[in-house]
């Protein structure tokens, strides 16, 4: 069966699919894709049967460790990773919200020391659906809809 790809094909690499359109640039930030030298292509506002619209990211010649990619679960909990080898999807992976999140997210509490001084944030995930993360420093909770990438 011949499939038309919305974003051009890669020979080897990773396709991150089912990213909420709002989260595309957050995923770019979290994975620091702006610092990559590999070919990276993006598609946004693509039609999706499940999500209405979605975003997709294709990264040539790059595979991710779970620990690295699980961070995107904070903004794209339903993202799917497709491992491409020789133009074929050889493996599909889902992302999992880690128990502990270091850096990445800003604490929602404006009076938190992490927003006043150059302190890397640390959160404990106390609920995954919806996401609730407790700040190690100020002990306040940042909720899913308040998540801002640092």
């Amino acid at each position: 069966m011949l499939k038309q790809l919305n974003v051009s094909a890669i020979k080897d690499g990773t396709v991150i699919d089912h990213i909420p359109t709002k989260a595309l640039f957050k995923v770019v930030q979290i994975l620091k894709l702006d610092e990559f030298n590999n070919m990276v292509t993006f598609g946004n506002n693509l039609d999706s049967k499940v999500m209405g619209t979605k975003a997709i990211i294709k990264i040539a010649n790059r595979y991710f460790e779970d620990e690295e990619v699980n961070k995107i679960a904070l903004v794209a909990p339903n993202a799917k990773l497709n491992i491409i080898r020789n133009y074929e999807v050889v493996e599909k992976r889902v992302v999992q919200i880690p128990e502990q999140v270091n850096g990445i997210v800003r604490c929602f509490n404006p009076k938190c020391i992490t927003n006043a001084e150059n302190v890397s944030t640390k959160f404990q995930i106390i609920s995954d659906k919806p996401i609730e993360m407790k700040c190690y420093y100020c002990e306040k909770i940042t909720y899913e809809n308040e998540i801002k990438i640092k």
Binding site: I113, Y136, Y137
Partner: peptide, 23 residues
């Protein structure tokens, strides 16, 4: 006055820290 400042100070300090109020 900042919340979490005492936990942060404890991380930075080599000696024990007592929080006498963080915001």
């Amino acid at each position: 006055p900042m919340e979490g400042s005492a936990r942060y100070a404890a991380e930075v300090s080599d000696v024990p820290v007592i929080n006498a109020g963080d915001g």
